[in-house]
Structure formats: structure tokens, C-alpha cells
């Protein structure tokens, strides 16, 4: 009887009273998002034949507005990408043209990476799109994480379910997997190199991988980031693209 009770207790404790998933996501949000961000990053794309690295500087305000300027290699330098809500413009200094990317083009990959424009454009909060639930605990690279399973509550999302591994102490995601409706794993994101910036924890390196394709994926590294600085309003305008 006593053993049975102990076993029951262990079982109960083991399946744990997990914290509320929405609470975790809220904390993640608080940690990750800011009024605005300015960062410099490098993106390394592993092709079938070679790899290449692109550096850029980005300004973003909330999730709705962002501007990215490519700095190198020389060929890309000066190319700017402006996102306002659900619209995307790209400006290239060589051709001195601004092109609006729309419709089916949004589903193409960005710069040959494993990310599509559409992946980049998603600006709605996860909590608005998904029903979250903590479904387990795991240790990743020595960090204890909550495993959150997110199920879409709206229809127009690209991925029906996601799994997010959230650091239990720092409240940043360390890994994310994106699934098709039937549960097929489509993409995996691994976040690492966590540093403390302006009082927040932030993963500086992100590895994206399209799981259906052969290949080594795309590596995204933030070399410098500032939160909540002053960003001039004109930066988020089409006129600024040409400057």
C-alpha cells in the first residue's frame, strides 16, 4: 500500500504540474521583443556547391515594420528590403528600381536560403495564432527546457503545428520545429550562442534547415544588436529605400 502510494506520488510529480504555456510565451515575448531593434547580422547559406555569407543591418519596429540593408558582398551591398505590414518592397541600387514582391513570389526563398519571404514576413504574435500547451521537459545542451506544442487556432498559417523548446530559466527558445498538418516535420530552427544584451537574454545564432531537402541549411548570426533606440520614422518609407 505504501509502495503503491509512493509510486502514485512519483507518477503525479513526474507528469508534473507544468507552468501555463501562455505564460511561458508571454515571458518569451517580453524577453525577445522590444519597441524596436537595430542589429547587424551575417547569414551563411550552405549550397550544394559552396557556401556564402551575406551581412546586413536591420531596423525593426515591433513586428510590422522593418528595413534591412545588405552590406556585403559587394554585389548585394546597398540592396534594401522594406516590409510594411504585409507588403514587401526590394530596392536595388544597381538597377535603381524598387520592386514590390507579391503573391506567389512571397513563397520563394530569400537569397537562396532555407527561409522564404513568407517566413520572414510573418508578423503576428505566436499567441494570436496558436494554442500553446506545455507537453514536456527536455535538456538541450545542458539547459533545462519546456517543450511547448503550438497548434494553430487560425486557418491562414503556413504551419499547422510547431514545437518550441524554451529555456526554463532565461525564457528564450532554443529550438523550434515546424510541422505540416499531418505531422510531417518540415523545418527546424536551432538557436544558440545566448548572450545578455541590455538586460535581456538573446540567442545570437540561428540555424534554419528545410528538413525535406538535402543540404546543410542556413546559418544566421547576429553580430551586434541594440534594443529600444531611436529610429527615425522616415526609415520605414519607400522614399528611404533610394537613399
Amino acid at each position: 500500500m505504501k509502495t503503491f502510494f509512493m509510486a502514485f506520488l512519483l507518477l503525479f510529480l513526474g507528469s508534473g504540474p507544468y507552468p501555463d504555456a501562455d505564460e511561458i510565451l508571454a515571458k518569451v515575448d517580453a524577453n525577445m521583443s522590444a519597441r524596436n531593434r537595430v542589429f547587424e547580422s551575417t547569414m551563411t547559406i550552405h549550397g550544394r556547391r559552396n557556401s556564402r555569407t551575406i551581412t546586413s543591418r536591420s531596423w525593426s519596429e515591433g513586428d510590422a515594420r522593418s528595413l534591412t540593408e545588405y552590406l556585403s558582398p559587394a554585389r548585394e551591398a546597398g540592396t534594401k528590403m522594406l516590409k510594411l505590414e504585409d507588403r514587401l518592397w526590394i530596392y536595388s541600387p544597381i538597377s535603381d528600381r524598387t520592386i514590390q514582391i507579391s503573391g506567389h513570389m512571397l513563397r520563394q526563398s530569400v537569397m537562396g536560403s532555407d527561409l522564404s519571404y513568407e517566413d520572414m514576413m510573418e508578423d503576428r504574435k505566436l499567441t494570436d495564432l496558436y494554442e500553446a500547451e506545455v507537453t514536456g521537459e527536455e535538456t538541450l545542451d545542458g539547459r533545462a527546457t519546456w517543450v511547448l506544442t503550438l497548434t494553430a487556432r487560425v486557418e491562414d498559417v503556413a504551419y499547422q503545428t510547431r514545437k518550441v523548446w524554451v529555456d526554463q530559466e532565461r525564457f528564450i527558445p532554443l529550438k523550434e520545429e515546424l510541422f505540416a498538418k499531418n505531422g510531417q516535420l518540415l523545418k527546424r530552427t536551432e538557436l544558440s550562442d545566448v548572450v545578455r544584451v541590455d538586460g535581456r537574454w538573446f540567442p545570437r545564432t540561428v540555424l534554419y534547415k528545410d528538413m525535406l531537402k538535402d543540404g546543410k541549411g542556413t546559418e544566421f548570426h547576429i553580430s551586434e544588436i541594440k534594443f529600444d533606440t531611436e529610429i527615425p520614422e522616415y526609415l520605414f518609407s519607400k522614399a528611404a529605400l533610394k537613399q
Binding site: 494553430a152 486557418e155 491562414d156 498559417v157 503556413a158 499547422q160 505540416a180 510531417q184 518540415l186 525535406l212
Partner: peptide, 15 residues
């Protein structure tokens, strides 16, 4: 063979 498509809302599906 694995087939991937999107439903009417653009959500990925595969089987």
C-alpha cells in the same frame, strides 16, 4: 514519395 502541398489557407501539409 513525399508529397507537400498547401491547403486553401496556405497551410503546409505533407504525406
Amino acid at each position: 514519395v513525399l508529397l507537400r502541398w498547401r491547403d486553401q489557407h496556405g497551410t503546409f501539409d505533407a504525406r
